[in-house]
Every structure is written in C-alpha cells, then in structure tokens.
Computed example of a mutant assay.
Amino acid sequence: MFPIRDHNPSLRTPYVTYGLIAANLIVFLMMLPFYGNEAASTRIFMQYGLVPLRLTNGAGIETILTSMFMHGGFLHLAGNMLFLYIFGDNLEDVLGHVKFTIFYLVSGLGAAFLQVIADPGSVVPMVGASGAIAGVMGGYLLLFPRARVDVLFIIVVFVRVIPFPAWLMLLLWFGLQLLNGALNIAQVGGGVAYWAHAGGFIAGFLFVLPVWNRLGGPKLWARTDGHPDKPAAKYKVTNSSIPVVRRRK
C-alpha cells in the first residue's frame, strides 16, 4: 500500500518541492554508473552518507546534508519522490518557499539526530531523503488531518484505490516506524533507518506547530473540521479494482 495522490490542491507553484525532486534525480543519475559496482558504490556511500559513529566522533558534519540527496536504488528514489510530490506542495503553500526550504533541512537534521542517538556506534551509512520527507508528513498531519489521501492497495490480484483521511494514513505510517525501530534496535548491518523516519516526522511536526497556532490552532480545526480550507481536488477516477471475469456456460 502506498499513497498516489491527495485531494488538497495548492495555490502557488511549489518551486522548492520541484527543485528538491530535480536535485535528487540529478544526484541519482550521477551515481547511476556506480550502482553496478559494489566497491565503488560502497566507497561513495561511506564518503557522503551519514555514518553515525563518524558523526559521534565529531567528523562528517557535512554528510547530514549530502546523505539527504543520495539513494540506494531506483525504487528507493521513486518512493521518496512520490511522497514528496504528494505532500510537499501543500506545506510549501502554507510556509512559503524560503521557510519550506528551512523546514525541509531541519526535518532532515531531526532525522539524523534521532538515528544517531538510537545507534551511535553504527558504521552503516544512512542515505535517502525519507527523513526530511517524514518531516513533511508530520507537518501535513498537523495542518490537514482530514485531507483525503488516495492509497493504492496491491494484494496479489486485488488492486484497489481506497481514500483515507490523512491522519489515519500518516499516524499508521508513524506508528509502524516506531514499532519497526523498536524491533530492530539491536539489528546489525543494513536495513531501513526507522528512527530517522520517526525523528524527521517529529521535527516536522514541531516546526509547523507555531505556524498552526498562528493560524488558529484548535480554532483552525474547528473552522475547517480538519479539512483543507479550499475546495478538494476531484479526479475522474477515484477508485479502481480488478474487473470481474465470468465464465461462459
């Protein structure tokens, strides 16, 4: 299951969101020749990825930034950019271009901080934009808890698009990060940086909290019932499923 779109149109062109997607794509294309060479790709990930042990020793501060634009493969990149595309434009619409840029970087910093705290002795490099994008999701939850998000389910031959309120989808996702982080806290080796996801989500939520208060806080939710304060986007196709096939008699 993964989200494919929301029904929350933005009023301004999300230049920063598009720029971040482009920057991640450019870095991926630059690294593309090295993905087939394990030694070369490992060397690059170790140099520019975030290695918790190195950071705790006071080195590699710049990798907090560089690691946010690197990905382990195409599916890693595609999944992250899909989430950024769906949720980023609405946060940029509310925060503005400059503040959204700061917000994104702060979320990435929060992701790095919690991952390092959770496993300070790890020598496994952390790469990917998912920590910063988790911050976008945390901010989105606070501002648009009842925005409609279409989620694509694929279970063997069952394919269907089901609408979810944002709060349910995002809190479920956040809960899974905490659960998986707790289950994998003693894990050695590679894998998913669940604590980075949780750290980014929390950082993004806290960053947007003063903005939410200025917009009215609980009064904003009371006025909009948690929905976006603009007409919802409508799509020609809102759900889909595998067609029924009947046997001929």
Rank of each mutant, 00 (worst) to 15 (best):
A182R: 04
L171Y: 03
A112H: 11
V124E: 15
F153A: 08
A147Q: 00
R160T: 08
L152S: 13
N184C: 03
V188G: 08
A198I: 09
N184G: 07
I154C: 08
D89W: 14
G108V: 08
A166M: 03
P163W: 14
W173K: 05
L170P: 06
S130G: 10
W167P: 01
L114F: 15
N180A: 11
D89S: 15
G199I: 04
N184Q: 07
Y85K: 08
V94I: 15
F113D: 00
G135S: 09
F103N: 08
M137Y: 03
L109A: 15
L170G: 05
L141G: 00
M169N: 02
L91H: 05
V161E: 11
Y194W: 11
F100P: 11
N180H: 07
V151Y: 09
V157G: 04
V124N: 10
A198G: 09
G139F: 00
L170R: 06
R146N: 08
G138V: 01
V123D: 10
F100T: 12
V188S: 11
L183V: 09
S130E: 10
A134T: 03
F100M: 11
A196K: 12
Y104R: 06
M169W: 13
G190C: 13
V192G: 00
W173F: 09
P165M: 04
I162G: 01
F100I: 10
H197F: 15
R148K: 13
A134M: 06
M169R: 00
H97R: 15
V161R: 10
V127Y: 00
L141F: 00
Y85D: 02
L142S: 02
V161P: 09
I133M: 04
G191D: 01
A132S: 12
L178H: 03
F164E: 12
D119K: 12
I155L: 14
I162Y: 12
F100V: 08
F158V: 12
W173E: 03
M169I: 05
G96V: 06
A186T: 07
M137V: 10
F164P: 11
S130C: 12
G110T: 06
Q115S: 15
A166S: 09
L114R: 07
